[in-house]
Design a protein around this nucleic acid. Structure first.
Lengths: 336, 336
DNA sequence: GACTCTGAGTTAAACGTTTAACTCAACGAA
DNA sequence: TTCGTTGAGTTAAACGTTTAACTCAGAGTC
């Protein structure tokens, strides 16, 4: 392991002061082109690379934002990371990603680790409805944006979410005309977006039929969910339509239907949440509520960079509409 | 924006020297419990947080590794990131993730950015067969592990890959008994893993039937691929079996088959690469070659931490076997 | 020719930690 | 009593940058 060249080594080799070397790289002050060339040659010869730690420590300017997500296995979150990373990078920022693995305790420690980098901004998708302590204590000190899983309303932090209630209503309204008995397949009914989707569906179903829809909880594990659902289907009356509130529940439901040889949409109609490419690569493409990931990423970055730019921006709570992708997994009203 | 508390502020408030504060947090030297408590209280009161930049700059110890992947939209890479992040974190390391977006030029700039953090190790999945310059120049200076897309053999860097040739052979052998005309649906035949899979399939097909299998290139975009494939199917004789070499090509092929009303496995058999959960959530679950992501992540981390631990470990080239998941998308020999 | 002004370079002081070297009191052993 | 020895604390010097303050030659002005 060879010792790394520092700015001093470069300065010595180029026969200039370290300040000049710094100026060559930062462009803060003009330097004579001949000298600059010498410096660059010296740097190349020593394969010098600026030390971010030293640079950030001294300058105080940190072109870094932290991003916390509940996990990196869910395409929704990774897409969000991808979008934000792209936008951030275009603006000259690095993104530090951390996953809380849906564990509130780990979430706190990951947040503390992120904050130790002294980032200039923080983006977080909390893993529960609660706002974790490290975020609480940074309110007003650090530019922050929360997304997706926001438990409280009227937080003094910018938020970006989908309108889950409306999305649930839209899904329900697609089924209503030709389906009476509607089932909701949920993952964890405790977390806010899921609860909101349920509320949206329920309100529509209730006004039309005067009863609340049935709900089955399929956990966050596909195989476990499929088993639970098979079991449920063997005990309960088969619904006419199912709305699956997450990617995982959709897959669990599909597995169960395949196992029990139940056809979509002939035997039962299905609507999923989140629109994945695999949903359209089937003989019967799946209807789904598409989350506006692209727009959410954009909104998150807009909020954050506005806030990082300083100025007294009032707190914003951005709510984006989902869009219902109507495909063939829902029986049309003619056959009702 | 309030100014952040430093170790000095904590020391002043607790009435001790900054060295003592440092010792309380690092545990390098014992301190009197009473004093320690005072320090902790002071730190809490000031909501002090250690500055990583300063700490790393001074100590030279950097519990950070960089990880470069071709993109964050492909579940294979994000799974790899997820596994590595988990293992790294358990060993007390932070992972810095960067995406090259399959762009060799961006790859270089992202690598330079990563290296500017002076990480203690680097993990990279190159976006092309070429080893990017920044990696080349770190050989022997920085612990590194390359994974998946390795163009050259016998590199003086640790590598972790799947045995793509064997995987291709296994897939071909599953089809051979009952399928004569086999088609390969590839994304980009230039990159090594794909080329190897093709080689594996071709060798088996050739020894059995004396001809090389046909190949169609479907790009890395699902919708474009589906269109190309529809077009291809309208011109060429329909194959008896298709082996799709990536997730994207599998989805493209499925879309095309759905559009043309071609049934699996009645009209054509299909084998995919990478085993995703959606593949089993269908009436006809898909056969696929499963990449050992979990084991690859583990192998990557093992290699890297061995190398970071120092010592003259000889260069290792770890090749892990894929596993063929046989499901119903392949017509059995009885119907041949 | 004396003057300011500018531009390009240097010097040296930070930034917030860690840590080697030091101090000093308390304790035993001889 | 004397003399290490130990343990717990302090002091101050780094780490590799950035940057305010400075120097100094050369150009422009009157």
């Amino acid at each position: 392991m060879v010792k790394r060249a520092t700015i001093k080594d470069v300065a010595a080799r180029a026969g200039v002061s370290i300040a000049t070397v710094s100026n060559v790289f930062s462009g803060k002050k003009a330097v004579n082109p001949d000298l600059a060339k010498k410096v660059e040659e010296a740097a190349a010869a020593l394969s010098y690379r600026l030390d971010r730690n030293a640079s950030q420590l001294r300058s105080g300017r940190v072109q870094v934002v932290g991003m916390l997500v509940p996990n990196l296995d869910d395409t929704f979150f990774t897409s969000l990371v991808e979008r934000v990373e792209r936008l951030a990078h275009d603006d000259g920022y690095e993104v530090l990603v951390a996953s809380s693995r849906d564990n509130p305790q780990l979430e706190i420690s990951r947040l503390n680790a992120l904050l130790g980098w002294r980032p200039s901004g923080l983006i977080a998708v909390p893993c529960s409805n609660a706002i974790p302590q490290p975020i609480r204590s940074e309110i007003g000190r650090l530019p922050m944006v929360l997304a997706d899983r926001i438990g409280e309303d009227n937080l003094p932090i910018d938020t970006v979410t989908m309108d889950n209630v409306a999305a649930g209503q839209a899904a329900a309204e697609l089924l209503i005309p030709s389906h009476r008995d509607i089932l909701i397949a949920a993952s964890n009914t405790a977390i806010r977006p899921i609860a909101d989707r349920i509320a949206g569906i329920s309100s529509v179903v209730e006004t039309h039929y005067g009863v609340r829809p049935r709900i089955v909880e399929l956990t966050s594990n596909i195989n476990a969910g499929a088993e639970i659902f098979c079991d449920w289907l063997s005990r309960e009356a088969r619904p006419e339509g199912v709305i699956c509130l997450t990617n995982v529940t959709t897959l669990a439901a599909l597995q169960a239907f395949a196992a029990l040889n139940i056809d979509i949409p002939e035997d039962v109609s299905l609507i999923g949440f989140d629109d994945y490419t695999w949903m359209t690569a089937r003989k019967v493409p799946l209807s789904a509520v598409r989350q506006p990931v692209e727009e959410m990423g954009q909104a998150i970055w807009n909020c954050l960079s506005d806030r990082m730019a300083g100025g007294d921006v009032p707190t914003r709570h951005i709510v984006l509409p989902g869009s219902l992708q109507v495909r063939r997994s829902v029986r049309s009203s003619t056959s009702a």
